[in-house]
Amino acid sequence: MSSKSGKQPLLVLIGPTAVGKTQLSLTLAKAYDAEIISGDSMQVYRGMDIGTAKLPIAEQQGIPHHLIDIIEPETPYSVADFQTGCVNGILEIAGRGKLPFIVGGTGLYVESVCYGFEFSESGSDEAFRAQQERFAEEYGAEALHQKLAKVDPKSAERLHPNDMRRIIRALEIFHLTGQTLSSQLEGQKRESPYELCIIGLTMDRAELYARIEKRIDAMMEEGLVQEVQRLLERGIALNAVAMQGLGYKEIAMYLRGECTLDAAVTLLKRDTRRFAKRQLSWFRHMKDIEWIDAGENFHNNLERIHGIIAGKFQVNLEYTSNQSFLDGGNVQ
């Protein structure tokens, strides 16, 4: 597979949670002999399967998946860590003659690889961090989030109020440099080192929200409460990066007796809907995305997706409506 520019081809599939990326990624990976790299900031953690919606190995259809289950939940994982692992993965996959294929919904992580963001060390101020942590303990996570919103509204918009580590880091960057995190990101180059083909999935908001609620109900049936319980019994701290993920913080509140299970699930559904909205907001600011409606008529759009990829990567794949990558109806 080649590209018009001579750069390494890189296929990317993005979209909000529950929009249908996983099943489509398997279809495309088989059609284009690709290996999948997870673009999800939480799937790197071992023992966190249900809440992160990991695809079981038995359902991966023999397609290699990378950057999944690579570290323990006690270990922090940053965008710079992801970028390094992903770039190395792209080189290895291409070296095997396969197409590198990033699939995920963590906007900054994916964008950092697509456009080769450079992360300079801004230094640290441990006393400042401790001060912000004490502020959050006294006044709550929402109050800390509002502090960030006052100095860096764009970063506040994309960060969940519970994501204290990243909120404090954004405040720390402003404290140390006088520049906001969002302005630093906007100053990054937007020329990709790859021949990019970015497919973005979207759908009617009401339909997406219904799918989110259905997914969370399924997670509860699969044992999300027990998964979070095992993590807490292991001694994973509530302020660990891994425990800030959707599902883990809310269920931990229930297990600690801070709310009922019904209240925790209601909160999780609300937070996940808000997260999907932030994901879409982030992606809307990215360039080079070919948007596809993943709703009821998605089956009819698969041929268009093929045409987009074929045009980018100069492939000549014969296909009809009977072939596997057009089979299966709507993406689940």
Rank of each mutant, 00 (worst) to 15 (best):
E111Y: 05
V87N: 13
V110T: 02
L108K: 11
Q83D: 04
L99N: 05
D81L: 03
L91E: 15
E92G: 03
G107P: 00
V113A: 13
D125P: 00
E126L: 10
Y115W: 15
Q83L: 05
G85I: 01
Y115G: 08
V79G: 07
F82T: 01
L99C: 06
L99D: 05
L99E: 06
I90V: 13
E111T: 01
Q83E: 05
V79E: 09
S124Y: 03
S112E: 06
D125I: 05
L108D: 00
E92L: 06
A80F: 04
V113P: 01
G123T: 09
E121T: 01
S112D: 06
S122M: 14
A127Q: 15
G95E: 08
S122Q: 14
C86K: 07
Y109H: 02
A127C: 10
G97H: 07
V103I: 02
V87E: 15
L108F: 04
I90R: 10
A80G: 02
L99S: 08
F119P: 02
C86L: 04
K98M: 09
G97L: 07
F101E: 07
G105D: 06
G105C: 08
E121P: 00
I90N: 09
F119G: 08
Y115F: 15
G85K: 11
G123D: 11
F82G: 02
G105F: 08
Y109V: 00
F119H: 14
G123R: 12
G107A: 15
F119K: 12
V103K: 04
C86S: 13
I93S: 13
D81W: 03
G107R: 12
E121W: 04
G104S: 14
C86G: 03
Y109I: 00
L91Q: 15
Q83G: 02
S112A: 14
L108Q: 06
G89A: 14
G105E: 07
E126H: 08
V113H: 11
S120I: 09
L91S: 15
Q83S: 04
G107W: 10
T84S: 10
A80E: 10
I102N: 04
A127E: 15
A80Y: 02
G123A: 13
F101C: 06
T106G: 02
A94W: 01
L91P: 00
F119N: 11
G105K: 09
E118H: 10
Y109W: 02
S120Y: 11
R96Q: 15
F101N: 07
V87Y: 06
F101S: 07
F119Q: 11
S122K: 14
L99V: 05
C86R: 05
R96S: 14
C114Q: 07
V113D: 10
L108E: 05
G105Q: 08
P100N: 15
L91I: 14
A127L: 14
Y109C: 01
S124P: 00
D81M: 07
Y115V: 09
Q83A: 08
E92T: 02
I102R: 04
A94E: 03
